[in-house]
Design a protein around this nucleic acid. Structure first.
Lengths: 159, 159
DNA sequence: GATTGACCTCAACATTAGTTGAGGTTCTAG
DNA sequence: CTAGAACCTCAACTAATGTTGAGGTCAATC
């Protein structure tokens, strides 16, 4: 076996291949403060190996449905070691879990409404539950959620 | 009460107010073939009243997570009466339900994986379940919804 | 020392779902 | 008839999440 120094930093190609994230996306993450890299004398990126874990965290968070902005905040909130440790991950993943729970609950609620409306066909803007989602997510808690819901119910843009 | 003729077509302002969809969005839907309108002599839009139902259908479909493209296809697939009738709605809502089921299942799967990984902290790109999505959200991501945590106010630096 | 693949930056484009604004017209109430 | 609200079109912009390409440099190999 060739001796491959385990601590050698990763090139962008290596990080890309190992993480499954394209180089252009890695550039993008860097521009947006999600990851960082040292540079060689010739200005090429060299990633510390724990960047792999960082990228893994980003990917998982995206799967949960979080926008990069929030993921960045989460990462920024970590003690300055930055890349999530086991302990960090445990904490953050609990938060992610709550988000997931809410998301699932909202979809299940919608499914219920949908079931109630199949065969009804009213789709009434006034009375159909499906058309009046506001109480739904409001009731489901924290007031934190907001999807593409029609907040326009209250107000239309000023003429 | 003033006598308001029930069959008078709707102006865009009326449709907007009654549907909770902004005029600009209605324009947008029209440009994309989701709704249509007749015009007055002076070129203003007049919507048949069943457009309300059509817009309701669009909104609900969006809540399920479908992109407009798919919603348009569904509408286009209807017998030429176009705006979904009760019967149409029953058929389509069954399809929507399947969509929803899949989305929910995918999220639940993810939640399971997340639970399995809390405290594990590996986030290994090779072995962690979380890092190896089995075709879950990746495929169904067409209309993947994003939920914004409202407290997240920080901005990403300009691209 | 030349080649070649990997890398660099910067700008533009892609997609989805719209919003905003400028500049002009129509409709309706008084 | 006129004022003002509502409407029209068209273009440009927003936001998120990147991708693509042009033009040029670096690094490793023959």
């Amino acid at each position: 076996m060739t001796h491959v120094p385990t601590h050698r930093p990763l090139t962008i190609g290596e990080l890309s291949e190992r993480s499954g994230v394209s180089p252009s996306a890695l550039h993008f993450y860097e521009r947006n403060g999600l990851i960082e890299a040292e540079r060689t004398a010739g200005n090429q990126r060299r990633y510390r190996r724990d960047t792999l874990r960082r990228v893994a965290f980003i990917k998982t968070s995206q799967r949960v449905g979080l926008p990069l902005k929030d993921i960045r905040e989460a990462l920024d909130s970590l003690p300055d070691g930055r890349t999530p440790t086991k302990r960090d991950w445990a904490k953050l993943s609990l938060r992610w879990r709550e988000e997931l729970d809410q998301r699932i609950a909202a979809l299940e609620h919608l499914r219920n409404d949908l079931d109630g409306c199949i065969g009804c066909g009213c789709l009434s803007l006034k009375s159909c539950t499906l058309q009046n989602p506001s109480d739904e997510l409001g009731a489901s808690g924290a007031g934190a959620q907001r999807w593409n819901l029609p907040e326009a119910e209250a107000e239309l843009p000023p003429g």
